[in-house]
Nucleic acid binder design. Structure first.
Lengths: 222, 222
DNA sequence: CCAACATTCCAAAACTATTTGGAATGCGCG
DNA sequence: CGCGCATTCCAAATAGTTTTGGAATGTTGG
């Protein structure tokens, strides 16, 4: 057994993972899957890509063991193969944000700094939510909420928000979140809430960022 | 500004990082750089690759901002662009080890389970080292030790170990470490120490694994 | 069993990455 | 200055990835 061969072997296995993560499309798909399980068709719809293409990318993710698939009737249901996958995604994004100016600039342009909740740590937010001093609002589709959500969060999917405004308290500040820093649903939710006179802000975190920082989340399903 | 374009832009930036990590050679180089700064020539020597090839890979890493270079006379000195890079590497390897059976098998074949220290947590090891109940031994080249090492660790590079055996205590168990789980220097050190009658075991951790788990390390240089 | 459907397989075209050889650059020392 | 050295640039050969169209597979419900 000579050394160069061994080394190449080990690093090749690790590279299987990073290769799988090296395409923007696969990162997007994996981020969706990190929110909960999905069918190929729903992933295609949400990512805006052709089903065949999505299927090909899912195959690559499957071969790297980052996702697993199961059959449910005529559908294939995919999910991330563990919580560590979401955490890896979050770590990767953090490194990208730290070192790539381009990414920071693009994000800054995109996200209204005004809408961003500032000066409150995750732990502080958790306490305030527990005491009812803020309302933590999950604006993702309800299935994703059921799969996992921040502690004390209430679910109102973005497309139902307008119809359900009267169920929100006028006197408690609202903190909206969605899938993570690149997801703009919470941004839109805050915009809507503010025009209707609510005090609202968004946080960048989603469930996976929360988990990556060692905090726990709530689940409604096994 | 329409959404599909924006998304592609953001994920493309993140993919720049994972693309840079998607080649076994670059992973190896980055792991070496995560131990401390190195010249192109020393990286080529340690990785066993051609200088031109190493230079090309370093360019890719530089473009992803994972490493930075500075000129020192006729040499270019490269280093990882932050501690988060080493932590990302450790996270990536953890995910690979968790999900890829091939990697676990290759590692198990390679590493004598006997030599592995078991049942002791990082924190316990730290306490025992502080009280002098074990000797933590860093067998990497001395420059890497000076750049960063585990708390209370003593430096004896692998190729000097045989000559310096008499400086080691016969009655205190020795725990050797090197660059991380894929580095076999500590394995060889343990083999040598055991044939000479010392009680010795290795740990998989290196400096970056230590940091990735939120523990601190010691440094001798700015 | 057949029709409808979700998904995957296969092959071709377009594109991108890796490796190598040879030439060029940039620095320091005599 | 100019020689030697470390490194990078350039270009060509090779190998791999992404995307698309069309055909095949497997499953449910009639």
């Amino acid at each position: 057994m000579n050394k160069p061969q061994i080394k190449a072997l080990l690093y090749e296995q690790v590279a299987r993972i990073s290769k799988a993560l090296s395409s923007p499309k696969r990162l997007e798909l994996l981020e969706l899957l990190a929110q909960g399980e999905k069918t190929v068709e729903s992933l295609a719809r949400e990512s805006g890509d052709d089903v065949k293409l999505v299927s090909a990318h899912l195959k690559a993710l499957r071969e790297a063991r980052l996702v697993v698939a199961r059959r449910a009737g005529r559908f294939m249901v995919y999910r991330a193969s563990g919580a560590d996958v979401g955490a890896l995604l979050a770590t990767l994004r953090d490194v990208a944000e730290t070192h790539l100016v381009e990414l920071r600039l693009a994000l800054a342009q995109l996200i209204d700094a005004e809408a961003q909740l500032t000066g409150v740590s995750r732990e502080q937010l958790l306490e305030q939510a527990q005491r009812g001093e803020v309302l933590v609002l999950d604006v993702r589709p309800e299935t994703e909420y059921r799969s996992a959500h921040l502690p004390h969060a209430r679910s109102i999917p973005l497309d139902e928000l307008e119809d359900r405004l009267e169920t929100l308290p006028a006197d408690v500040p609202i903190v909206a979140y969605c899938r993570g820093p690149f997801c703009l649903m919470s941004e839109q939710a805050v915009a809507l809430l503010r025009t209707r006179g609510f005090r609202a802000a968004r946080i960048e975190d989603g469930v996976n960022e929360w988990l990556a920082h060692g905090l726990s989340v709530e689940r409604l399903e096994a």
